[in-house]
């Protein structure tokens, strides 16, 4: 039990009369690449937003055990508090600080967990300067890690879709997260970029030891990267298991894979 990063127990989320998540229970083990799949409107994004503190489920508990032995409850905490507790995320339609360069985007992430320091900034003592150097160093390393080093000084708004994804991942990683949550990272990318993305996700886990949750539409990417899957339909978990198990699960085939057009990758 102690090795769960996210322990989601029986959460239900309603908007007015619409039930978006119905009694969902999910365990996210430390160090694994977990994926949540499901057809459109199955509640994937609702689950994602509940995990990151954007939505508040009315029932159930979500325990985040980012630093081992210090479990905190996600529900009722603001998004920034979940983020500073060690959960980084990306957005479905990528959200960058578009008037800033790639480098600046990542650097903001790298220094966001440091204290306020308005006075420190104005005095600019040795500690502040050391902090700056560390952030710069880390930013360069991360840009190199995601392969954006050459575009460090490019305005982030002029990056390609694939590059924006990698930028978002780098920015998230800059906050030293325990878990990285990816919201449909393959949306809008081309096949070559998808392959790169799959590699990158694996490297984030293997080399940096970051636990990964993937919410995805694109079956090819999910099946190649994820080690374990949850399948959502109409707000409920209908199946869980390894990619091989899911492929052969009748309920999943009926709900989702059965319809032939979703076999191939869906571009959204």
């Amino acid at each position: 039990m102690s090795d769960l990063v996210f322990d989601v127990k029986n959460i239900t989320l309603r908007f007015g009369g619409v039930v978006s998540l119905n009694d969902v229970t999910m365990e996210h083990r430390r160090g694994e690449i977990l994926a949540v799949i499901g057809p459109n409107g199955a509640g994937k994004t609702s689950l994602f937003n509940s995990l990151t503190g954007v939505y508040r489920p009315q029932e159930g508990t979500i325990t985040l055990n980012a630093r081992e032995g210090h479990p905190i409850s996600v529900i009722g905490r603001g998004a920034y508090r979940i983020a500073s507790a060690g959960v980084a995320r990306t957005f479905q339609a990528s959200r960058m600080f578009s008037a800033l360069t790639t480098f600046e985007n990542v650097k903001i992430g790298a220094e966001s967990h440091k204290g306020l320091g308005a006075v420190g900034a104005m005095v600019r003592g040795p500690a502040t300067r050391r902090g700056e150097r560390e952030s710069d160093q880390k930013t360069f390393e991360l840009l190199e890690f995601v392969g954006l080093k050459d575009q460090a000084n490019t305005l982030s708004a002029s990056l390609s879709y694939g590059a924006r994804r990698r930028l978002e991942i780098a920015r998230g990683l800059a906050t030293n997260p325990v878990a990285l949550l990816l919201d449909e990272p393959a949306a809008g990318t081309n096949p070559a970029e998808k392959l790169e993305l799959a590699n990158l996700i694996r490297r984030v886990r293997d080399e940096l030891g970051v636990t990964i949750l993937l919410i995805e539409h694109d079956m090819k990417l999910v099946m190649s990267v994820a080690e374990r899957l949850y399948v959502l339909n109409f707000g409920s978990v209908i199946a869980t298991g390894s990619p091989a198990e899911i492929r052969s699960n009748q309920a999943v085939i009926d709900a989702y894979l059965g319809s032939s057009e979703t076999q191939t990758s869906e571009a959204s």
Partner: peptide, 30 residues
Amino acid sequence: LFRLLEHSRVGRAWTAIREDEVAAESIGIN
């Protein structure tokens, strides 16, 4: 003082909030 502040992490955090508050929160900025 303000020039230092502008180019500090505080100044960059303000920029981040101004440009996209949701994204800023997602990296732990209050």
